[in-house]
Design a protein around this nucleic acid. Structure first.
Length: 470
RNA sequence: GGCGACGUAGCCAAGUGGUAAGGCAGGGGUCUGCAAAACCCUGAUCGCCGGUUCGAAUCCGGCCGUCGCCUCCA
C-alpha cells in the first residue's frame, strides 16, 4: 500500500514520494498574529498535525515547520488603534497561539520561524530576485515582475489577464503590471521598518514564506500546506518567487484544507462570524473539535453548528467508552479470537483508508468498529493481553488522529476535589439499594446526575463518571 | 464576470462503474429494582433532467442550489 495525496498543483491524487527517502519536509502557513485565533485556524493546524502524525506512523522522519507572520499591515493598524507597540502586540498573540497549539494537542513543530527573525535573509533574497530581473524597485518598494515568470498561475489555474478582469483589484500604484505584487514595502510615516538597499521598509506578505522555507527546509520541500483560501494569491506568489530564484520545484505536494464555516460562510475575522479557540475550549474538548473536523474530509468545508459539535461530543464519548476497563477474567477462547481478528482488520483497514488521501471519516468508522468489538468482548467477560492489545490499538490509532481520548474528569480539578464526596454518596446509595430503598437511592442518583455525575450500576458495584458536554 | 469545489437517510458523512461505511438523533428489544452504559434489530436508490453502458451515487451534457478564491485571510 502506498500513500496517495491530493496535490492542488496537479488536481489529482498522486503517490507520495519524498525528495529524500524516509524523510519528509513540510511547511504549513501559520497565522498573522494580530488578534485572537479562531477555530478555523485551529482546523488548519489540526489537519496538518494529523498528516504529520500519519506520515510518522508510516515510518517517515518528518521535519515540520510552521511560521508566524509577526509584521504586516494588520498588525500595524491594530497596534495603532490600541496604542500598543506592534512588536509587543505580535509577541502577545504569538505566545497565545503557541499555547493554543498545545491545548489542542498539536505536536510541536521543529521550528517556528518568524518574519522579524528573517529580515536579512529576506532582503538578500529580494536582491537576488532583482538581479535576475524578477523584481524592480519603485519609490522605495520592490515588486515581483510577474511577466517574467512564464508559468505564473499554475497553482490557482488563473491566467494573468483574468486577474485583471476581476476589477475588484484597484491598484493606484504605478506597477508595471497590476498582477505584480510587493516583495518589499517602503515604510510610511510611523510604521516599523528595517533598513534595506531600497530604503526603510518591511517585507511583503509572500516573500517571508519563500525565504523561511528555503532557509529552514531547502530549495524543494515535500509538502506545503495551508487553508485553501491561501491558494491565490499567497501560494501562487510563493511559487513564483521561489522557483524564479532557484529554478527548482518549490514544493512537490500542495495540500489545502477546506474552510470551517459558521452560519453558512467561511469563519473569518473580517466577517466577524467566529468562535475563538479560547471560547471553544472553555466549553468543549480538543477531541471534540478533532472529531468534528475528521468526521468529514479535510479538503471539504465543515459546518460548525450547535448540532454538529454536539454530535461530535457524543461520538467522542463513544470512542472513549472503548477504553473502559475489562470487567471479566476470560483470556482465551473464541470470543478472544474474534477480538483479535477485528483488531487486526481494523489496524490494516485504518491504514488502507488513510493511505487514500487521509480519509479520516472512513478511518473513524474503523475505530468505531473496534470500539464495538471491545465492548462486546468486555460484556462477554474478556480480559487479558488481547483485550489490552485491542485497547492499545484503539489508543494508538486514535492518537494518529491526535485524539487523546482522555477522560474529561482527569483534567478537571473541580471533579478531582469532589471525588471523595461523590464516593461517599455512592457508597451511601449502595447501602440504600441493598435495603431496597429505591426511592432514596434514586434521589441520590438523580441528584448527582443533575450535577453531571453519571452513575452506572453493574454486578461489580457502581461506577461514576463526569458526564460533561465535552 | 472568471477560476474551482460541492449537493448521499431527520442531522453530519464515507463511497470515482456492479444493486449504498460510520457517527448523532429516533423507534423496538436484551440486560437492569428502575435508570445509565453496552449489545442486537430498525431507515435513504444518492439535487433535477437527459445521455453513455449489460449495469451509474459514481462517466458525459444541461439546469437548479450551496460554498471558496479572484481584496487581508487557516
Amino acid at each position: 500500500m502506498t500513500l496517495n495525496i491530493y496535490n492542488t498543483l496537479t488536481r489529482r491524487r498522486e503517490p507520495f514520494e519524498s525528495v529524500e527517502e524516509g524523510r519528509v519536509r513540510m511547511y504549513v502557513c501559520g497565522p498573522t498574529v494580530y488578534a485572537d485565533a479562531h477555530i478555523g485556524h485551529a482546523m488548519s493546524a489540526i489537519v496538518f498535525d494529523m498528516i504529520r502524525r500519519y506520515l510518522e506512523y508510516v515510518g517517515y522522519e518528518v521535519t515540520y515547520v510552521t511560521n508566524f507572520t509577526d509584521v504586516d499591515d494588520k498588525i500595524i493598524v491594530r497596534a495603532q488603534e490600541t496604542g500598543q507597540d506592534p512588536f509587543e502586540l505580535a509577541q502577545f498573540y504569538t505566545d497565545k497561539y503557541l499555547k493554543h497549539l498545545s491545548d489542542l494537542n498539536i505536536k510541536p513543530a521543529d521550528s517556528y520561524p518568524r518574519v522579524t527573525n528573517e529580515i536579512s535573509n529576506i532582503i538578500r533574497t529580494i536582491g537576488d530576485l532583482g538581479e535576475a530581473e524578477y523584481a524592480y524597485e519603485m519609490d522605495g518598494s520592490v515588486y515581483f515582475r510577474v511577466e517574467n515568470d512564464d508559468d505564473y498561475g499554475k497553482l490557482s489555474r488563473r491566467r494573468q489577464e483574468e486577474a485583471v478582469t476581476g476589477t475588484r483589484v484597484e491598484s493606484d500604484e504605478r506597477k508595471e503590471n497590476v498582477a505584480d505584487f510587493a516583495l518589499w514595502k517602503g515604510a510610511k510615516e510611523g510604521e516599523p521598518y528595517w533598513d534595506s538597499p531600497w530604503g526603510p521598509g518591511r517585507p511583503g506578505w509572500h516573500i517571508e514564506c519563500s525565504v523561511m522555507c528555503l532557509h529552514h527546509l531547502g530549495e524543494t520541500i515535500d509538502i506545503h500546506g495551508g487553508g485553501n483560501d491561501l491558494i491565490f494569491p499567497h501560494h501562487e506568489n510563493e511559487i513564483a518567487q521561489s522557483e524564479s530564484l532557484t529554478g527548482k520545484p518549490f514544493s512537490r505536494y500542495w495540500v489545502h484544507n477546506g474552510m470551517l464555516q459558521l452560519s453558512g460562510e467561511k469563519m473569518s475575522k473580517s466577517v466577524g462570524n467566529l468562535v475563538t479557540i479560547d471560547n471553544f475550549l472553555q466549553q468543549y474538548s480538543a477531541d471534540a473539535l478533532r472529531m468534528l473536523i475528521f468526521s468529514g474530509h479535510y479538503r471539504k468545508p465543515v459546518a460548525y453548528t450547535d448540532e454538529s459539535i454536539a454530535a461530535s461530543v457524543r461520538s467522542t464519548a463513544r470512542l472513549r467508552g472503548g477504553l473502559r476497563p475489562a470487567t471479566g477474567t476470560i483470556a482465551v477462547g473464541e470470543d478472544v479470537n474474534t477480538l483479535r481478528e477485528v483488531t487486526e482488520a481494523v489496524r490494516s483497514g485504518f491504514r488502507q483508508v488513510m493511505d487514500d488521501d487521509f480519509n479520516t471519516s472512513a478511518a473513524l468508522a474503523h475505530l468505531f468498529e473496534l470500539v464495538r468489538a471491545i465492548n462486546t468482548a468486555r460484556t462477554a467477560g474478556i480480559a487479558g493481553p488481547f483485550f489490552q492489545a485491542a485497547q492499545d490499538t484503539l489508543r494508538e490509532l486514535a492518537g494518529i488522529l491526535g485524539l487523546s481520548l482522555a477522560d474529561p474528569e482527569s483534567f478537571e480539578g473541580d471533579a478531582l476535589a469532589a471525588k471523595p464526596f461523590i464516593d461517599l454518596l455512592v457508597s451511601v446509595r449502595t447501602e440504600l439499594r441493598q435495603d431496597k430503598q429505591w426511592a432514596m437511592a434514586d434521589k441520590v442518583r438523580d441528584g448527582l446526575a443533575a450535577l453531571s455525575v453519571q452513575l452506572e450500576d453493574s454486578q461489580n458495584g457502581t461506577d461514576w463518571r463526569i458526564e460533561d458536554a465535552t
